[in-house]
Design a protein around this nucleic acid. Sequence first.
RNA 1: GGAAGGUUGGCCGAGUGGUCGAUGGCGGCAGUCUUGAAAACUGUUAGUCCGCAAGGGCUCGGGGGUUCGAAUCCCUCACCUUCCGCCA
Length: 423
Amino acid sequence: MLTLKMLRDDPQHVIEKLAVKNFDAKEIVGKVLELDANRRSLQAESDALLARQKQVASRVGALMKEGKREEAEEAKKEASELKVRSNELLAKAEENNKELEAKLVLLPNIPCDLVVPGKGAEDNQIVKVGGPEVSLPENALPHWELAKKYDIIDFDLGVKITGAGFPVYKGKGARLQRALVNFFLDINTAAGYREIEPPSVVNAASGFGTGQLPDKEAQMYHVGLDDFYLIPTAEVPVTNLYRDVIIPGKDLPRAMTAYTPCFRREAGSYGKDVRGLNRLHQFDKVEIVRIEKPENSYAALDAMVAHVEGIVNRLGLRYRILRLCGGDMSFTSAITYDFELWSAAQGRWLEISSVSNFETFQSNRLHLRYRDDEGKIQLCHTLNGSSLALPRVVAALLEDNQTEDGIIIPEVLRPYTGFDRID
RNA sequence: GGAAGGUUGGCCGAGUGGUCGAUGGCGGCAGUCUUGAAAACUGUUAGUCCGCAAGGGCUCGGGGGUUCGAAUCCCUCACCUUCCGCCA
């Protein structure tokens, strides 16, 4: 959620910047400013009324003590009349402020200056391509075939147990999952990220805090009986750890990492995009989250990108880094770098990580603040990134490392898997 | 799931209708003293909204109600503790 201050100070800037995201904000911004002006004048009016009400009420007490009963009755009457008027105003203000909030949450985060305009994926900027070239034999198999061949991931069984998009990992396939999680967590903690194991189910307040609610409600599984949501990413519970918190400036930055299962309904997707591990309803992911002072957040973002690149490099897979254009960025992000692995067997890039700076967009909703050197309270910047999401790493790993003699496990993973090939 | 008792500022804890945004203690910060520190003493120490400011509004788990007036009374929801039941 954008801050009202930002909108008030320079509405034109907000409108221009949102155009980079292909978002025409003119009308909403105008409405927000109007509602904000209303809010302030309504408050000034009702505050004055309430102040008088309080004065009169305390006079009643004093008059009662002095035994001036008649005057007290007079005052009571006056207070009652004031109350009727202030209640009307308060109701009006509440309605106004609800509408203001409803409009305000419709505005996406403004992109930072590095972000170029664009409509969709085709306009993303390729920042870097790295890792070894992949050359596969003619008869190379996609990962879903390999999974079947070696009996390590069973999509059909998942359908039986739950439904499409809930695979069952078996044997070395299951062990590989556990190995990757541990490998990623170890690298992250070694880099100073504190390991967190959060709940995988959150309440609505948490969903709102990181921006999943109300706009992306359909993306989450909802537990109706208790009004809980299955998390779509560890970002939700981990960032919400700091909801309604004022952090002493000296305690920043905070860096955390968490492994969680992630649940996404992915309503409406189909085709080759969802084949095999390409898109799932449940998957494993290790996430990194940082809370920073505003002046440090872009340095932190660069550090996170470099950190994720380090992990990808160790896996020895072909990758590229994209800086997303305005139109392809999420609602909440100010800038996003995507990491993709090359899947030679599928002939396509697979997204495995998304590293973003949200600036104050989340912290404004979360009321996540810090006390600066002068003792003033300011909004923090929040950042997060995948490090990494497992399924597509597994997909690329299986496909790119396939040989006549089975799938070769990268050297760095062998201490975790306990085997060097899947055959 | 059943029963009872709770939820107050960074923490502990007082406050059961009248000037209470809240006594006191701890902790924090500043100062006095000290070569320095500790101790002692003094002062200070919630957030938020409106306002150029002066000042004012709101907040004692959340929401609603009673009343001229609510931290205090009533309703409701959430959470916590204890006992019973169940259980990895």
